[in-house]
Design a binder for these strands. Sequence first.
RNA 1: GCCGGUGUGGCGGAAUGGUAUACGCGCCUGUCUCAAAAACAGGUCCUGCAAGGGUUGAGGGUUCGAAUCUCUCCACCGGCACCA
Length: 824
Amino acid sequence: MITRTKYNPKEIESKWQAQWEADQQYHASDDSPKPKFYHLVMFPYPSGDLHMGHWYNYSPFDTYGRFKRMQGNNVMQPIGFDAFGLPAENAAIKRGIQARTWTLANSENMRKQLRSMGAQWDWSREVVTCQSDYYRWTQWLFLQFYKHGLAYRTKAPANWCTNCNTTLANEQVLADGTCERCGSIVIRKEIDQWLLKISSYAERLLDFSSVIDWPEKTMVMQRNWIGRSKGAEIRFTAEIGGKHEEIPVFTTRPDTIYGVTFFVLAPEHPWVEKITIPEQKTAVDAYVKQALRMTEIERMSAEKEKTGIFTGGYVTNPVSGEKVPVWISDYVLMSYGSGAIMGVPAHDQRDFAFARKFGIPIREVIRPEDEQPSDPETWTQAKEALGVMVNSGPFDGTPADRAIAEVIQYVEGKGIGKLMVNYRLRDWLISRQRYWGAPIPIVYCPEHGTVPVPEDQLPVWLPENVQFKSTGESPLRYEPDFLNTTCPICGGPATREADTMDTFIDSSWYFLRYADPHNSEAAWNPEKLKKWLPVDQYVGGVEHAILHLLYSRFFVKALHDMGHLDFDEPFLRLFHQGMVLGSDGQKMSKSRGNVEAPDKYISKYGADTVRCYMMFIGPFDAGGSFKAENLEGIWRFLNRFWSLVNETWTDNKRDVETRESKAIERLRHKTIKRITEDLSNFHFNTALAALMECNNALIKQQNDAVAQSAAYRRTLETMMQLLAPFAPHITEELWQQTGHTGSIHNTDWPAYDQALTQDEAFTLVIQVNGKVRERIEVPADISEQEVRELVLNNPRVATFIGETTIQNIIYIPGRLANVVVRKG
RNA sequence: GCCGGUGUGGCGGAAUGGUAUACGCGCCUGUCUCAAAAACAGGUCCUGCAAGGGUUGAGGGUUCGAAUCUCUCCACCGGCACCA
């Protein structure tokens, strides 16, 4: 018997946190012979405080990591900070402090809060993206992309506030298209920016064959984002100023080529100027100007009503030889395909709407097999289904299954087009006209043009004391010490690139740096990378399903191709946690007033209770409401377990088997099995329920003789171990109090014997025509013959069979027997 | 509009072809207490005196048996959205 004490989480939690830290218990060794397990969670932005969402995310995550550790793995579970980004810059402007000061102070506070969770973070590997020992290598990576032709500079549209004279991030543009700072109209302006050629990896990024377990939904979202579509490029022609010119269009429906009755250019298309006839010039200019003034947001929120204007010019359909009028409309996007389309109103809903609006003829050229001809002018919508080609000259009668292929073959033969695959995915614009990010390591020399900073001159330092303009414009543009430099080639005066990199770059490789975080000679040592990568389990929010996860995959594939990595998929298994909501079931937000700070509950109940509660809310991927009163249930459970161990712990190691002790032993094995399976499947809520059930069963018998048995003692011991990943402090304390040496977290995960997970007897449910009519206790090894006899001789069952005839008896071993009867 | 998901007691949820409502919250009763809290014990889907009957968003189908598979519809949530 141990000394009776009261469960005092405050005392034991800080004690064990300090002890684990002193023992460096969770430092992952590069040399351990155990199998490695790289367990990663998306690193936080240092906003200032660890909120409920972090606790909801990290509690089950850490529990899983601890489970893997006890299962004999060398678990590496690092943490760090995604420390560049706009909020720090806004804080700097608002409060007049340096972005760096603000960020580092926040990180320090969050570090303390992260420690209070009692998670097995390996702090020795911490990575902070705004430190020069990190962004130096971010810049090095940019240079690798540049060297391999994957980084290029071109004019690209940015949100531009004409009043503040600065670019804005999408989130700085209000829904009505105005600047959040000054309220002026935001326009799209073409400025020189850096991009990464992610589009050349579109096809590779569609391939998920080397991941082990990703949510189907995430793969679908990425595939949709990449948006592969197969079709044909067909070149239309025009005589302009006596010259023969060609203009390509992309279409997924080359079989509708004879239905083209008009042609549309995007407002930004370079042909707009040369195809427009003088009489239309004024009107066309006005339309283009208006279209360009709209931001993307506005263009998206605009009504579906089609707008457009006729240029007065014509192009020739190279297949039919027909001349068709050229229009301009903003429903054609410059960024997709060739920025020009062939208009087939009969078989495309958008073209149909456009033709109706402007009185353009509609010509049917595709007809489903069994349909009668009809006048397209009477249609209410386009017929987009495949069908037999009609009104298509030599192609008339070509069936649906061959139509597309035959037209492609025809245009290829004639040299007027070709098979083509198009992607929705655009290149990744990484320039940010912002201060708080990694400077792009490029120098502009009047003599040598664009010159990359030599690798041995990295990092390009980000100035630490800067003065912000009230407009929010990047201070780097006004820092002569930063801007003015010399050309790495000729040594003459030159200017630095003043833009910084998108913070998604920082987070596209942090998981590589964790493998070798202190390397000052290289981004990583290949041997260390080989040891740890790829990531075995990645956990993070579904809001990153597309951008962060796609960019990281792109980085790894590109670095693989450059010869820097020997794997080409970063995350083998991926899990998205749900979102924790306020008690009203709404997203937590200051404006709703339903935000709960975790610290209050940590000091009241301790980290173990809060951790367990987070997992008990519901399935990890479903999220759920945070309800403070429900913490009581977990608090009671931990207290009951504490008291149970205190009151019943015995040093009895002799095994005198009784019927009761054997039942306890079976309960032990059954519980190990349930917890092991639940944890393997991320079912934390049901695992805790199983622990509660076992605890309740033990409490029921705590005053019986069996509580003195070795089996009961073993079960208490097993419970401590099974609970250890969920509630690491209380279990460590009890482990020590019950005379064990060494940390419970270094013990082996309990094993179970399948044979002992079955009870000796079970409740046989007897149904008549599927309705439960009787339950009887029977031995587990009962034969089907014996069950049949029991069923047929049961008086209660007999009353339900009555005058009917037995057709069949279905027996499901260990569960139920169903007597199928029919009247008569 | 397209794609994906969800729907079970007063509440969070469990059960993924075999006992619907495990586990927990809340509520009710009791023990203890001068009293309250805490703790502990018992009860708690609807209907019915009972035997029984009914119940997993609605309706149909498959099956000896359906919350689970299938079809139609409804509601809510998430993603994408003029992508040619």
